[in-house]
């Protein structure tokens, strides 16, 4: 009669045959096999086919030496070509760059669009620059022109003043908005 002991034993027959069970389990399975005819039949059958497979399967597909040599010649030719992982990495790199480029574009495009809109609008209708800012801009242009003739190594006091002044002053371009 098939009971839980049979179930326990059947589940472990392979391991029992392969001597993969620990001692306690091995003892339980062994005792049940001695007591149960059905499980004993199963065990004998499994043992036979296991041994048969162990004997037969290593013989299946015995290779033939000249064929293996031929395969080796082809392998040698292949490994002398450029490494595939380099090619893989190249193509992968190429794809990654493409994806990265697309992402950048997706991020930059709205900004560019916004910037364009904000820049185009004031251009259509320029706001007047304040007199002070315009004066500073002209002054700076002149100073730069002078610098190309005389090249001072340290900024002058008036430069510092100018920079400080400019930092507190709206960017002329922004003012034009």
């Amino acid at each position: 009669m098939f009971n839980f002991k049979c179930r326990y034993t059947r589940a472990r027959l392979n391991a029992f045959i392969n001597r993969d069970l620990d001692l306690a389990a091995r003892r339980l399975v062994g005792q049940h096999l001695d007591a149960c005819d059905d499980c004993q039949v199963h065990y004998q059958r499994l043992r036979r086919s296991t041994h048969e497979l162990e004997r037969r399967l290593p013989q299946l597909g015995a290779p033939n030496k000249p064929r293996l040599n031929l395969i080796w010649t082809q392998i040698q030719q292949e490994i002398e070509r450029p490494r595939p992982q380099e090619a893989d990495e190249e193509s992968l790199g190429w794809r990654s760059w493409l994806v990265l480029g697309a992402l950048c574009l997706a991020m930059i495009l709205p900004l560019w669009w916004q910037a364009n809109n904000t820049m185009l609008a004031p251009l259509a209708q320029p706001a007047p620059l304040s007199a002070k800012v315009e004066e500073t801009r002209v002054y700076l242009i002149h100073r730069r022109a002078l610098h190309s003739y005389s090249t001072p190594s340290t900024p002058t006091a008036s430069d510092h003043h100018l920079v400080a002044y400019l930092r507190n002053t709206p960017d002329p371009l922004l003012v034009r908005r």
């Binding site: 299946l60 597909g61 290779p63 064929r67 395969i71 392998i75 292949e78 490994i79 595939p84």
Partner: peptide, 24 residues
């Protein structure tokens, strides 16, 4: 080769896989 042959049962296929596997 034995492994590939036992799984595929085709000499040519088994040889191809052996070659590909070693090259890889």
């Amino acid at each position: 080769y034995r492994l590939c042959y036992s799984l595929l049962f085709q000499q040519q296929d088994a040889e191809d896989v052996v070659q590909e596997a070693f090259v890889y």
